[in-house]
């Protein structure tokens, strides 16, 4: 639940989602669910030339299982809060 809760707090911020197929998409985080499926708005593909079929996609749903990384905005990372939440989660099992 830790990362689900964390991403919910991040809604409205700009992130870059990098997929396991190397596609990287930047956009505003619209929503996230328990599987860490992600919806982005105002998206743009980082390497547009390579993915011409994504040209007119502005909103998308990304299946959580295909995500490799999410680049997070520094102002959206509260290190102390994350440490506490992680310790709590580790104890809870």
């Amino acid at each position: 639940m830790l990362f689900f809760s964390y991403f919910k707090e991040l809604v409205g911020r700009e992130v870059t989602v990098e997929l396991k197929n190397d596609l990287a998409i930047r956009g505003t985080l619209h929503s996230v669910d328990q599987y860490l499926n992600i919806k982005l708005e105002n998206t743009r593909v980082v390497d547009q030339e390579k993915y011409p079929h994504m040209l007119s996609v502005r909103n998308c749903f990304i299946r959580g299982s295909v995500v490799r990384y999410v680049q997070l905005p520094p102002e959206g990372v509260d290190v102390e809060l994350l440490h506490d939440a992680t310790r709590r989660e580790a104890r809870g099992g």
Binding site: L23, L55, V57, R58, C60, F61, I62, R63
Partner: peptide, 22 residues
């Protein structure tokens, strides 16, 4: 089947779906 889905994107109406050189 869902596990084969990577991404579902909404195609913006009235916008070119592909670059003009294609």
């Amino acid at each position: 089947r869902g596990e084969n889905v990577v991404l579902i994107g909404e195609l913006e109406l009235g916008k070119e779906e592909l670059p003009p050189h294609m």
